[in-house]
């Protein structure tokens, strides 16, 4: 049966359509979830897409974290539901304390959009199991507040537990500590990534097809996961 992957739309979500397209191209069925939904409609995994949820008012992701749909997602993530937060989605996951640390203003204070090389370092997560350890991929990065910060202990812990999922290579686009581009939780089902894999799934519109691996990974994960 085709996996059903939820893509949440908050007011101000922008890459929700792109995430849904990537899910489709990967071979799964995208299910659109509304921020006000009080249930997850039985989806097998969830993508929190990029954008400016609630206008980034207060702090990126700070309001979205309280959306009704997030309560359900936080619960389900605790139970192992695969969740991928991209860009604003990563910010929301940090605000929701599903992932440690925070994303702050880019060090150079500008929004930056470029094609970025990443090195995939953790391939045991629900969203990266089709990559090779150390594999370099080319994926667009675009953010104004993508500078990952955490205290030194947290960073050491992330490194020690192999929870740094991807690092920037060939230039750090936002000043993230230790070049961190993506991290995961202890269980490996929740991944937050600042660059946009959903923008690298078609030869016509992306710099590569490398982003597809994130979406095919979760399908592989779901097949292997106990029902």
């Amino acid at each position: 049966m085709t996996a059903r992957i939820g893509v949440v739309t908050f007011p101000g979500s922008l890459d929700d359509g792109d995430a849904a397209r990537a899910v489709r191209i990967a071979g799964a069925e995208p299910v659109r979830l509304w921020h006000g939904d009080a249930e997850l409609h039985g989806v097998d995994a969830v993508v929190l897409p990029g954008g400016f949820s609630y206008g980034d008012y207060l702090r990126c992701g700070a309001i979205a974290r309280f959306a009704p749909v997030m309560e359900k997602i936080i619960d389900a993530a605790g139970g192992g539901l695969p969740v991928l937060g991209i860009c604003n989605g990563f910010q929301i996951l940090c605000e929701a304390h599903l992932l440690p640390g925070a994303l702050t203003r880019n060090q150079h204070l500008h929004f930056r959009n470029r094609d970025q090389i990443l090195r995939i370092e953790a391939t045991g997560t629900a969203w990266t199991n089709t990559f090779q350890p150390g594999q370099e991929v080319l994926i667009p990065v675009k953010n104004g507040e993508g500078c990952y910060v955490a205290d030194a202990n947290t960073l050491d812990e992330l490194e020690a537990e192999g929870r740094v999922v991807a690092r920037y290579v060939g230039g750090n686009p936002n000043g993230s500590q230790r070049d961190i581009a993506a991290i995961t939780n202890q269980a490996g089902n929740v991944v937050g990534i600042m660059p946009h894999p959903e923008h690298a799934v078609e030869a016509l519109t992306g710099p590569s097809l490398d982003g597809l691996g994130f979406f095919t990974s979760v399908l592989k994960h779901l097949v292997g996961a106990p029902a």
């Binding site: 359509g17 792109d18 990029g50 929004f111 959009n113 675009k142 078609e202 016509l204 519109t205």
Partner: peptide
């Protein structure tokens, strides 16, 4: 002009086939 153009999102909506510095923008 990358200093300018990389401050703009050219990927969102997933239909950008060509964007700056190309001669034209092309949208699917």
């Amino acid at each position: 002009k990358t200093w300018v153009t990389e401050q703009y999102d050219r990927y969102v909506l997933g239909n950008t086939v060509l964007a700056q510095p190309e001669d034209s923008g092309v949208i699917r």
